[in-house]
Simulated scan of single mutants.
Amino acid sequence: MEQLMGTGVALVTPFKDDLTVDTSALERIVEHNIQGGVDYLVILGTTGESVTLSKAEKQLVMDVAIRANAGRLPLVLGVGGNNTAAVIEDLTTLDLSEFTAILSVSPAYNKPTQEGIYQHFRAIANASPKPIVLYNVPARTGSNMLPETTVRLAHDIPNIVAIKEACGDMIQIDKIMKEKPEDFLVISGDDFTALPTVLAGGAGVISVLGQGLPAAFSKMIALGSNGNTDEAYEIHHALLPAMQLIFEEGNPAGIKTVFETFGLCSAGVRLPLMEATPGLKKRIADFLKSFNRVHA
Rank of each mutant, 00 (worst) to 15 (best):
E234S: 13
L209E: 05
G250W: 07
P131L: 09
L26N: 06
G6Y: 07
I124H: 00
P214Q: 03
K178C: 15
A222T: 15
V87A: 10
M1H: 04
F291E: 10
E231G: 12
A238L: 04
L273Y: 11
I255L: 00
G254I: 03
V269G: 05
L273M: 10
I157K: 06
I246D: 10
G45S: 08
P214A: 06
Q114T: 08
L4K: 00
D90V: 13
V294W: 13
K130L: 10
T277S: 14
V186D: 11
G224E: 12
G6W: 10
A276W: 05
L264A: 13
L223M: 12
N136Q: 15
A68G: 03
D174L: 11
L213F: 09
R28I: 05
S106D: 08
Q211P: 03
E248G: 03
L53G: 10
V61M: 00
L280M: 07
L199C: 04
M5E: 12
K219D: 12
I43A: 04
F15W: 08
I163S: 01
Q244D: 06
L26V: 03
L185A: 13
M62Y: 04
G210Q: 09
D230H: 14
T46Q: 09
G116W: 02
G212V: 10
I163G: 04
T92A: 01
L153K: 08
V258E: 06
V9Q: 00
E115K: 05
I255T: 00
A108T: 15
N228A: 09
Q59M: 06
S106K: 07
D90F: 13
T23F: 13
L223T: 11
T46D: 09
I255C: 00
T84G: 01
D174T: 14
A139P: 05
A162F: 01
A108L: 08
N82E: 07
Y135Q: 05
A232G: 05
K175P: 10
G254M: 06
F99T: 12
N126W: 12
N126F: 10
I206C: 08
E165L: 14
R140V: 06
D22F: 10
A203I: 07
C167G: 13
T47P: 02
L134Y: 07
V161R: 00
R293E: 15
E2L: 11
Y40V: 15
L273C: 13
T93W: 07
G263K: 05
A68E: 01
S188Y: 02
L264P: 03
I132D: 01
I34F: 02
S104M: 02
T7N: 08
A238S: 04
D22W: 06
T20V: 14
F184M: 04
F192M: 11
T20P: 08
L195A: 04
A56C: 14
A127K: 01
S188T: 03
E165P: 10
D90Y: 12
T229H: 12
E49N: 11
P241K: 00
T149R: 02
V87W: 11
V79A: 05
H237P: 08
K16I: 15
Q119E: 10
P129M: 04
V161C: 03
T84E: 02
I221V: 09
M1T: 07
Q172W: 11
E31C: 13
